[in-house]
């Protein structure tokens, strides 16, 4: 047991270094996906027929193909047409593209769930259509989508681990390298799993606080 702790302790700096990459990929991908997700959701609900089809096509394409395939297309496919990303940036772009589609669907469901009377009330006080969407529908859609969105945030935190496949030295990548050097795969993956668990628990607590704050305001 003390061997185990000594091994974990000795490799903790490398794993934590990897965790920094994990968090970087996650934050950038989630923020990018958040902005793109809203654009797609609004385009799909309120857009003209062409934007609706484009948004729907994007969402179906991304949801219909594996994240790993998307990531290899970004990292190894795009260089053939002259677009070259570092492994870290490629992981951010690929996971961002992926989560955008899922976030868009949660936001769209939120928009659809806002009661029609809210829109009528906004128009009745003289707000324009655009103002009503911006000040009333989208803020309410966000609150409705929040529980589903929280789920997506947590899932994506764990999905950053696929970035090891394009040689990003994030948490999973570091664990794999340490395992290959030491042959202590079982031990090192357990430590990595515990770090993921701690990260997810912290994020879950934070999301709970946010959800509680908004609970009254739906």
């Amino acid at each position: 047991m003390s061997d185990w702790f000594a091994f974990a302790w000795a490799n903790l700096p490398a794993l934590l270094h990897g965790t920094v990459y994990t968090l970087e990929i996650w934050v950038v991908a989630m923020l990018g996906g958040f902005v793109a997700g809203w654009v797609l959701a609004v385009g799909r609900v309120y857009g003209d027929p062409i934007s609706r089809k484009l948004a729907t096509g994007y969402i179906e394409l991304i949801r219909g193909t594996p994240l790993l395939v998307q990531m290899f297309i970004v990292y190894q496919g795009l260089p053939q047409i002259g677009i070259v990303f570092s492994p870290l940036v490629a992981a951010m772009v690929a996971i961002g593209i992926n989560t955008a589609a899922y976030q868009a669907e949660y936001f769209r469901a939120g928009i659809r769930s806002v009661r029609p009377g809210q829109l009528a009330a906004g128009r009745a006080i003289g707000l324009t259509y655009i103002q009503t969407i911006g000040h009333i529908v989208l803020p309410q859609a966000w609150r409705i989508a929040l529980p589903q969105w929280s789920n997506e945030v947590i899932i994506e935190l764990k999905y950053t681990s696929v970035a090891f496949a394009i040689s990003v030295p994030e948490l999973m990548g570091q664990a794999k390298m340490i395992g290959a050097d030491s042959f202590k795969y079982f031990q090192i993956f357990l430590v990595a799993a515990m770090i993921y668990l701690v990260l997810v628990s912290a994020v879950t607590l934070l999301l709970d606080v946010i959800e509680r704050r908004y609970a009254l305001r739906q």
């Binding site: 009661r115 009377g117 809210q118 009528a120 009330a121 009745a124 009333i136 803020p139 309410q140 305001r217």
Partner: peptide, 13 residues
């Protein structure tokens, strides 16, 4: 023109 709805429609958020 002020409008008062049957089901109020206050902005819930």
């Amino acid at each position: 023109i002020g409008f008062v709805f049957q089901d109020f429609n206050l902005f819930t958020h």
